[in-house]
């Protein structure tokens, strides 16, 4: 029996067919406000972003560095909730039907909104990336049932080889390789370690492997894209959004994404 391809599968297939590296961009929903987030999502896509990763704010984001922590705090001050984020994605879908949207956040906020989460696929979300669950866990076993959402798992430099194969078996969409030991936005990128780990992951799965955490410059993006199937940009975007949020002048951010997009297609 053949299953229909999901939006995420189709995007990944089309990138593969075109031999293109994926550009994944992260932003925090509700920072500085939900209208801006919607504008930025469309702007990101126009600037060359292939997949959007929408951060769901949480009071205690233990995997985030100071830049993304502060963005979570700002979004929470605006009363950004998961239910409002589902509405945001639905609105985004009015003008965009082919860019996958991944919700990235922490387990407690997802569990508090189980019912809405189970319906979120209908409103246009494609996957969840839950930072604080073990990569081999099945969403069903932690209380998230009846969902068509793909589950993206993280693999870290410290993940043992036997767990890498378990995590790969349990993943769909793509594998997110964490390029450093540390929180988001750190600067201790280790390219040679990333290379050998990504190669090992590739030996365990046919899913594409994207690299993220600590990628700031077009040069970083370029060197990591050579080892992987795509890169994730997070903290540097969140920082730029904050710097430009008062005037809501986001053009510089789009130019930056454009440069990254060019750097990874060289």
């Amino acid at each position: 029996m053949e299953y229909p391809l999901t939006r995420l599968d189709e995007k990944i297939l089309s990138l593969k067919n075109a031999s293109k590296k994926a550009l994944v961009a992260y932003l925090v929903a509700g920072d500085p406000d939900l209208d801006s987030t919607l504008e930025l999502m469309h702007g990101f896509v126009d600037a060359g972003v292939d997949i959007l990763e929408v951060g769901v704010p949480f009071t205690d984001p233990i995997a985030e560095g100071p830049i993304i922590q502060a963005a979570h705090d700002r979004a929470l001050k605006n009363n950004t909730s998961l239910t409002k984020i589902f509405k945001l994605v639905k609105k985004f879908r009015e003008k965009n039907v082919d860019t996958p949207v991944i919700l990235m956040g922490y387990i407690n906020t997802f569990l508090a909104n189980i019912k809405a989460l189970e319906e979120s696929y209908v409103s246009g979300s494609d996957a969840v990336l839950i930072v604080d669950i073990p990569g081999e866990s099945d969403l069903k076993n932690i209380g998230i049932k009846n969902t068509n959402l793909a589950s993206i798992s993280l693999i870290a430099p410290t993940t043992s080889k036997d767990r890498i194969s378990k995590i790969c078996d349990n993943s769909s969409g793509f594998i997110y390789y964490v390029t450093l030991r540390g929180v988001t936005g750190s600067s201790n990128l280790n390219i040679s370690e990333a290379e050998s780990n990504i190669n090992f992951i590739r030996s365990q799965t046919s899913l594409p492997v994207f690299a993220g955490f600590g990628i700031k410059t077009p040069d970083d993006a370029s060197s990591l894209s050579k080892l992987s199937d795509g890169v994730v940009i997070g903290s540097s975007l969140v920082e730029m959004i904050n710097n430009h949020s008062r005037k809501k002048e986001f053009k510089k951010i789009y130019n930056y994404l454009n440069e990254i997009s060019k750097a990874i297609s060289l």
Partner: peptide, 13 residues
């Protein structure tokens, strides 16, 4: 349980 970022899983084990 163990609800932590992946980087910590090995250290906990």
């Amino acid at each position: 349980g163990k609800f932590v970022p992946e980087t910590l899983m090995h250290a906990l084990k």
